[in-house]
Amino acid sequence: MLSRVADAAYWMSRYVERAESAARVLEVTRTMLIDLGQVGTKRAATQVGDVLKLMGTKSRTLEEAVFDVSDPASVISNLSRARENARQVREVISSEMWDHLNQAYWRLSEAAGQTSRVEDLSQTLEDVIASSYLWVGVTDATMRRGEGWGFIRIGQFTERADRTARLIGLACSSGSLELPAGGPERTNVGWLRLLRSTCAIEAFRKQHPTRVDPRQVLDFLLFDPELPRSLRYSVEVVERFTERLPMRDRASRRALERRFGRLTGHVAFSDVDDVIERGPQNYLGDFSQLLQEANIALQETYFLH
């Protein structure tokens, strides 16, 4: 396939995943503030501020972070970029994929124009999340397992690894790694938010039916081989699909394998004790660096030659 088209397919998929991830963390934060009875307080402002920083947005409110088209990191901007990329790859993706992505974009645009958009925020965010699920399902159900499919999967799971790493970083910076003394009501909300923002709370509870122990959460989201948003799962998917891409030449293939090998190695050959010993932020910083290098190698091999 055309390099430009492969590039667009990869980014289309990344932006859908990014929009979904942003929508989920915004919605989780919103309900968390209500649960804590903190809406409008200074602590609430810090919580919101942290999430906005994580999204990389310049918006100052949850509402803006969803709807502001002039903010490149807003949910609507991400969805719009996903769609612009999809427009460039329509001859590669299925019509159904385009249709559903396009509809999701139009629904969000329409929601942005409603006067009740603040009251309906929850519904809108849930719709973005559901649209992404639907789109991923439609992609799975209608697209040929060729090269284009490979780039879409790589994009999706690269973005997912990146988002999960950022979310873990946020939880580590705001919460203690120790199990707090006292009863279950003392559970650190930061870790709960992390589990909810990665769709992992139910899976976690099934594995750890006692209290939410930060070490266990960390272990689960970094290393669980079966959790579809863990770092380990995500990088394994990325590596697997990268191996299947067509080989340009031996040298570029080896360079690519080296980069992805380092990335998966970083996850495969660590455990939670190492991570805590080195400091989670250091560990995650290295991870992000390796992810970015692998990403650059992929782009140089397939998109930018």
Binding site: M1, L2, V5, R87, R90, E91, S95
Partner: peptide, 12 residues
């Protein structure tokens, strides 16, 4: 884009 898709060829 439509014609490229319908013909199954690349759009360059």
């Amino acid at each position: 884009s439509f014609l490229a898709r319908q013909m199954g060829v690349s759009l360059v």
